[in-house]
């Protein structure tokens, strides 16, 4: 398997690791968003969603471990790519025309990723941990809506989701390019779908704290 290790450590292989884990995370976000949107139908709908997931309990834990591995590979490999690329550039030009020749989304992947990572840690600590490993008396709807009532928590949530949209807008089409699927006929469509996906995911997630902070029960 030495060749495989060398492959994943090559400049193109590292990008493929980002792509494969990125595509899995893109799919995960759709499922996560669909589940979260049940919050709009109230406590009962949301609890039904949560308890439906628990029907596959032993399997759910395995999926969670795999998901965690996907996140870890995406994060660690991403940092490795960023750091290696920084070294490959070395000294930068004093004057830069980067805003003329590339998009802000593509240039700020590490910055958007950093904020999303901070969000992820807070997210797991305040929602996943108390629900799954807390004292058992916790009700998921109560935890989530309680947190959304805290303005600072919600504002950071919204900010992180906006940056997630930035990250996905570049990441979606970038995954296709790295796989080598850049075709004259289809690539413009892929870019458009990527942008729509990024907006829908960011707006979908961010709509929940906005709703609970400003509209729910008023």
């Amino acid at each position: 398997m030495g060749w495989f290790w060398k492959f994943t450590n090559s400049s193109i292989g590292k990008k493929l690791v980002m792509t494969v884990t990125g595509i899995l995370l893109i799919i995960f976000l759709i499922i996560h968003l669909a589940g979260n949107l049940t919050l709009y139908w109230g406590a009962k709908a949301f609890s039904t969603y949560a308890s439906t997931l628990e029907l596959i309990m032993p399997l759910l834990r395995i999926i969670e471990v795999l998901l965690a591995l996907v996140f870890i590979f995406h994060i660690i490999n991403g940092i490795r790519v960023w750091w290696g690329n920084k070294k490959s550039k070395g000294v930068e030009n004093k004057i830069s025309a980067k805003s003329k020749n590339s998009s802000i989304f593509s240039r700020t992947m590490i910055q958007s990723a950093s904020i999303i990572f901070i969000f992820l840690v807070i997210h797991l600590d305040t929602i996943w941990y108390p629900y799954n490993l807390g004292n058992g008396a916790e009700n998921l709807y109560g935890i989530v809506t309680g947190l959304f009532m805290i303005p600072l928590y919600s504002w950071f949530y919204i900010f992180a989701m906006a940056l997630l949209g930035f990250h996905l807008n570049h990441g979606f089409q970038s995954a296709f390019q790295t796989m080598g699927w850049n075709h004259k006929k289809y690539f413009p469509l892929i870019q458009t779908v990527g942008t729509i996906y990024a907006i829908l995911v960011a707006a979908g997630f961010a709509s929940l704290p906005i709703y609970f902070l400003y509209f729910h029960g008023r």
Binding site: I12, K87, K89, N101
Partner: peptide
């Protein structure tokens, strides 16, 4: 020592 592509298309 060339870097990895991050698809900025610059």
């Amino acid at each position: 020592g060339f870097g990895s592509c991050s698809n900025t298309y610059a």
